[in-house]
Design a protein around this nucleic acid. Structure first.
Lengths: 145, 145
DNA sequence: ATAATAATTGATATTGATTTTCAATTTCAA
DNA sequence: TTGAAATTGAAAATCAATATCAATTATTAT
């Protein structure tokens, strides 16, 4: 896994946002800091609670708005689970898959699925044109076992 | 794919529900008929609209309640997509994976993923205990291309 | 630095999906 | 056929997410 010092990631996100024409505000700084440095999936409300410690005027609305912008820039991605659907996590540059701890939400990406042959086979037998796929693994992380 | 005459599937679901102590009502019959015979994923509202043709006193609440019971009996399963998260489809007895048309929602199950080796590898390198996995393919069905 | 302007903010109201409550109705077993 | 218990749908409540809007703030040009 890519080891990326937290503050460096937050700063690089800030650069990206600035280059995209977004202004750099206290509220956004707080939201970005929280998600950029978290190794767990977080709901909007969880981001709000944590970011509020850094910016106590922060509103939940701004969390949603900032998350939407970060998602648009492919810096964070939405994470789905059986229930509790809309959580977020810092994205990887390449398209990788998630391994999620069902207890604490700690998540990490992995790659190396060998799905191409299966996808070709399924495309042939089904007649579908396949354009996307989802793979996620669930379980318990080392600390939660 | 398993070819299962629609009304037979609906009837077998009804048997299952009865054996589980649920009463057989007009409203449930309508909801069950709709999902049991659909080859597309359906939201609660879509089920409601279609089932209402068969039972015009039907309330949306009963749709939710019946879906919850069918899910509890593993007869239907919840389907997740990028947006529009909670749709439903008739489940397969064994744990298979879904191929979904992003245009019309037509879906079919497939099996034969060779994920075991990957899961073992990821478990080893991550230290997670992996207990579950999700695999879904998205694209366009023959009719929607 | 300062002022102008355009983006951003948070409070509030609104939406839409789902759940809860509850009195009336319906199923099923006796 | 009858009565108890489950089920129903309407209405109210909840919850996450979005839209509105006047006040604030970051940036640009001066």
């Amino acid at each position: 896994m890519d080891v990326f010092p937290d503050s460096r990631r937050a700063n690089s996100w800030f650069d990206r946002m600035q280059k995209s024409g977004y202004r750099l505000t206290e509220a956004r700084r707080a939201v970005v800091d929280v998600i950029a440095s978290s190794d767990r999936i977080l709901t909007a409300t969880q981001v709000f609670d944590q970011a509020r410690r850094q910016c106590d005027s922060l509103g939940l609305v701004t969390v949603y708005r900032t998350l939407a912008k970060l998602e648009e820039l492919s810096l964070v991605e939405r994470v789905h689970q059986s229930e509790d659907c809309h959580a977020y996590i810092a994205a990887t540059p390449d398209h990788q898959h998630l391994l999620i701890c069902q207890q604490c939400g700690r998540a990490q990406f992995f790659s190396g699925d060998r799905l191409e042959p299966l996808m070709i086979e399924v495309a042939q037998t089904s007649g579908y044109h396949i354009s996307d796929h989802w793979l996620q693994l669930f379980g318990l992380c080392g600390e939660c076992q």
